[in-house]
């Protein structure tokens, strides 16, 4: 019986260790997921906080001086919209009018500074497709 108890305690220690790892990892990587109107409703409380934002790339809003330079576009959902600035590799699947998820921060001037751009292309089952 004593032995069983020792195994039980050992197991508990491991479970606690895993939970601790999970907790720490969670805190460092938690990202809120908002739609454009949800983000705007939060006001200044979300400035400079890392969030994910989903919406549609407004048709005709995509601006890029040349490939490899800064990408600017407007993200919309229903009536609300937000300007987005992104620097980096633009995935092949990115297009105006398509659904998109961006990750980054909303700055005080009301521009969303994205460091990650994840377009989705609906109605198509594609087993492997990332970033």
């Amino acid at each position: 019986m004593l032995r069983k108890k020792r195994f039980l305690i050992g197991g508990m220690v491991i479970i606690l260790a895993i939970s601790y790892l999970g907790f720490v990892g969670f805190q460092s990587s938690v990202t809120y997921y908002y739609t454009v109107s949800e983000l705007l409703a939060k006001g200044s409380s979300v400035y400079d906080q890392n969030v994910r934002l989903k919406g549609v790339v407004a048709p005709g809003s995509v601006e890029q001086e040349s490939v490899g330079k800064v990408l600017k576009f407007t993200i919309v959902d229903g009536e609300e919209s937000l300007p987005v600035i992104y620097q980096g590799v633009v995935p092949d699947t990115f297009k105006a009018g398509g659904e998109v998820v961006v990750e980054g921060q909303l700055d005080a001037t009301g521009v969303f500074q994205a460091h990650k751009l994840m377009p989705k292309c609906p109605s198509r089952y594609v087993p492997q497709q990332q970033q």
């Binding site: 990587s29 938690v30 997921y33």
Partner: peptide
Amino acid sequence: TEISVGPPFFNQV
């Protein structure tokens, strides 16, 4: 609210 956890979570655990 939707909250997602990114790759750092999975890697750290």
